[in-house]
């Protein structure tokens, strides 16, 4: 129900937000170039620039280098708040991963955006956002020391078919904390995820690209096949 209300609000706000965006675009703060048309998709919920305030989404001024979920006067999803507490900083790399597939990056995010698959378009959008952060010239296109936030997985690993019986045994370890009912107080729900998202999330923990220490440890010793088995098991789990 909350999701439906959200969609209506996005539709309604886009009209109000649009004039503000064109002002920003016309300003001389930077060369947004190719990123501006893509920003138009974001501007239904997010504002950026001198007059920006928090709307459906938080304002994105100074987003580079900021801790996730760091604005006091914006109510973030539990997922992003948790990521922030766990130490997630928005960098070129982490923003790129988040925009590519928000729900894989932060499963419970309220950003109802399906993701931007085209890496070149993401680069354009990030170039646009950079111009609204402090000292943009000091923010490299990609920090040489930055950690990737998305795991690099071969097509073979992504295509692995999991053995649900093995998954059922392995899952017993997950179920000490995560509940089959999908209850998510304090500990997130992991049931009924698309298998690809599950696989990406687990590999992100395994490669220590996602920050939570328990999950890094749990995922760290799972093989590719075991992750696939878990994904297969939880994708179909009914109570």
């Amino acid at each position: 129900m909350a999701g439906r209300a959200g969609i209506f609000m996005i539709a309604g706000l886009a009209f109000f937000a649009a004039p503000g965006v064109s002002e920003v675009r016309a300003s001389d703060t930077g060369p947004p170039g190719n990123g501006a048309p893509i920003w138009a998709e974001c501007s239904g919920c997010h504002q950026i620039g001198p007059e920006a305030t928090n709307a459906i989404g938080p304002n994105l001024n100074g987003i580079f280098g900021r801790k996730a979920a760091a604005l006091d006067n914006f109510q973030y999803s539990k997922s992003l708040a948790r990521a922030g507490r766990d130490g997630l900083i928005w960098t070129y790399e982490t923003l790129d991963a988040y925009i590519a597939n928000p729900r894989v990056f932060a499963s419970g995010t309220r950003m109802s955006y399906p993701g931007l698959k085209d890496a070149a378009k993401r680069a354009d959008l990030l170039a646009y956002l950079r111009d609204f952060s402090d000292k943009p010239r000091d923010i490299p296109e990609a920090e040489p020391t930055a950690r990737r936030a998305m795991p690099e997985l071969s097509a073979d690993v992504r295509a692995l078919a999991g053995d649900p019986e093995y998954g059922a045994y392995l899952a017993s370890e997950c179920l000490t904390c995560h509940q089959t009912s999908g209850a998510d107080r304090g500990i997130p729900s992991i049931t009924l995820w698309p298998t690809e998202d599950f696989v990406l999330a687990m590999h992100a923990y395994k490669q220590k690209l996602r920050p939570h220490p328990v999950m890094q440890m749990m995922a760290g010793r799972l093989s590719d096949g075991e992750i696939a088995a878990l994904a297969a098991y939880f994708a179909d789990l009914k109570e």
Binding site: S172, T176, C177, Q179, T180, D184, G186, I187
Partner: peptide, 13 residues
């Protein structure tokens, strides 16, 4: 809060 989630999870398990 995580520990509260864990308690609910493990007792259900």
């Amino acid at each position: 809060e995580e520990s509260l989630g864990w308690y609910a999870g493990i007792t259900a398990d």
